[in-house]
Structure formats: structure tokens, C-alpha cells
């Protein structure tokens, strides 16, 4: 039977506070989880469900177990909030973490966290999860929404290589450069547009004209700056390539 109004107790097993504050946040006006009948209670004795956060430290383990056994025997729902509670998170194999499973193995799904000592009903990953993510988890438990995740196992034979030879090489070099100029997030998207120009153009001069045209279209000053830098580095790579080729010819000439 799906639960209706959940009374929850918040159990922190050594979390960094991020998830705990987001749990508090879903109680405030923007998200107001009480719409779903959820109420935060001050003791596990009144709780239907535990909202567990944290990677389960060794010191917290004993009290956490006690809190679980203090709950009424039914329904005793356990909701793991956050990546740490789902699988130990970034702390998964530290000496201070309570873990029964092997600490160095390459198993999957990755082990650790709440499921090391309690049967978990719903996992809500995120570091920290957005308030909406927590709402979604509770709604899933109540049967209000459908599950969206499903595991994937790909064994695709086909391989797509969007660019080849010189352009592929340039793209790799420019990736490292643009990361320093405007960052990976905006930079990689910009690089993609730039590489399309490179593919279209026949010479660096023609590319220069196309870049100028594109700069006129872009309103954002930082993107214009990034484009300028991309073109500068591109010319640098072309010059380097040419000099390598020239040197190589000389060397070959001598050996002949």
C-alpha cells in the first residue's frame, strides 16, 4: 500500500550539511513539502519514515541504528537523501566510514552509505539534491509520479568521429586552451561553433573573415573574447604545424 501522509524524522549520519539544509528548504514557502502531507517530527518514535543523509560515519552508526529501532515497527520507511547516503559519495572508502563491503573493489552499483546498515526504500541522489529532487523522491514514494531512471547497458559497435586528421588534432589542442580562457561550460559550446567554421573555410585568412562575421552576430563580450582567443590559438597551431613540416623536410633532405 502506498503511504499517504508521511511523518518524517531527519537523521544525519555525518553529512556535510548541504542535504540537511535542502531538506529544511523544502519545508519553506517555495517548495512547501507539507502539500504532500509530509511533516517533520522531533523524534523517531513518531516517524513513519527516516530521511537519512550522510555517508554513515563510524561514530554516528550506533546512534543512527538506535534511532531506527526506536521507530514504530511499521511502516519504517527509509529514504536516502543525497549521494553520500545513496552510496557513500566522495567519502566512500575513508577510514572513518562504517562499511561492511570491500573498500577497494570495482563493483557496481557502487556500494556504501545507508544501505550498509538499513534497507532503503527510495534513493534520492544529488550533491546536494535540488529541493525539487527531494520532492520528486517523496512523490515517487507516494505514487504520484512515475520513475524516470532505468539502467543502461550499451554494446554499440558503431563509433562516430566527428572530425579527422588535422582538424581533430586542432580541436583537442584548442579544448585545453579555451578552458583557460572562458571555462569548459561556455568554451566547449563555442569551440563547436568555431570548428564548424574551420571545416567550412579553406584557408586561415578566409577563417579570419568568417570569425569577424560571427563576432558581429554575438552580443556577449566574453564569447567574443573567447572567439578571438580561439582564432589566435588556431593560427598558433597552424604556424607550429607548418614549422614542424618544414623542419621535417630539411631532416629528410639531409638523410637522403
Amino acid at each position: 500500500m502506498k503511504p499517504r501522509s508521511l511523518w518524517v524524522f531527519h537523521l544525519n549520519t555525518g553529512a556535510c550539511n548541504g542535504c540537511d539544509i535542502e531538506i529544511l528548504d523544502v519545508l519553506t514557502p517555495y517548495h512547501d513539502i507539507e502539500r504532500l502531507g509530509v511533516k517533520l517530527v522531533p523524534t523517531p518514535r513518531h516517524a513513519h519514515a527516516l530521511l537519512v543523509t550522510g555517508p554513515l560515519t563510524r561514530q554516528a552508526y550506533y546512534s543512527a541504528r538506535k534511532a531506527y529501532s526506536a521507530m514504530p515497527s511499521k511502516p519504517r520507511i527509509v529514504i536516502a537523501i543525497g549521494t553520500c547516503a545513496c552510496s557513500g559519495g566522495i567519502f566512500y572508502n575513508s577510514y572513518a566510514i562504517r562499511r561492511e563491503s570491500d573498500r577497494l573493489s570495482l563493483e557496481y552499483p557502487r556500494k556504501g552509505g545507508t544501505s550498509e546498515f538499513l534497507p532503503v526504500d527510495i534513493y534520492v541522489p544529488g550533491c546536494p539534491p535540488r529541493p525539487e529532487e527531494i520532492l520528486y523522491g517523496i512523490a515517487l514514494l507516494r505514487g504520484l509520479v512515475k520513475k524516470k531512471m532505468g539502467g543502461e547497458h550499451y554494446t554499440v559497435k558503431e563509433l562516430v568521429l566527428p572530425r579527422s586528421q588535422f582538424n581533430a588534432w586542432v580541436e583537442l589542442l584548442l579544448r585545453a586552451k579555451i578552458r583557460r580562457e572562458i571555462g569548459y561550460f561556455d568554451g566547449y559550446a563555442l569551440l563547436k561553433d568555431f570548428m564548424e567554421l574551420v571545416e567550412k573555410s579553406n584557408s586561415p585568412e578566409e577563417l579570419g573573415k568568417m570569425v569577424e562575421l560571427m563576432k558581429k552576430r554575438i552580443k556577449d563580450s566574453r564569447l567574443r573574447y573567447g572567439l578571438e582567443m580561439l582564432y589566435k590559438h588556431y593560427i598558433g597551431v597552424v604556424r607550429m604545424y607548418e614549422s614542424i613540416l618544414a623542419e621535417k623536410k630539411v631532416v629528410l633532405g639531409v638523410s637522403k
Binding site: 548541504g18 572562458i182 569548459y184 556577449d220
Partner: peptide, 22 residues
């Protein structure tokens, strides 16, 4: 930054995301 709490912005030597005009 892409996240409400963990900004994930700082690495040694600078930051990872830029502040575009918008």
C-alpha cells in the same frame, strides 16, 4: 555556477566557469 550549493567552481590556478554578460 550550475548548482545551488556546491559551486564546483574553484580549481588550482583559477575558476572553471566564466561570468558571461547575461
Amino acid at each position: 555556477t550550475g548548482n545551488r550549493k556546491t559551486y564546483g567552481l574553484v580549481v588550482v590556478g583559477g575558476v572553471r566557469r566564466d561570468l558571461l554578460d547575461y
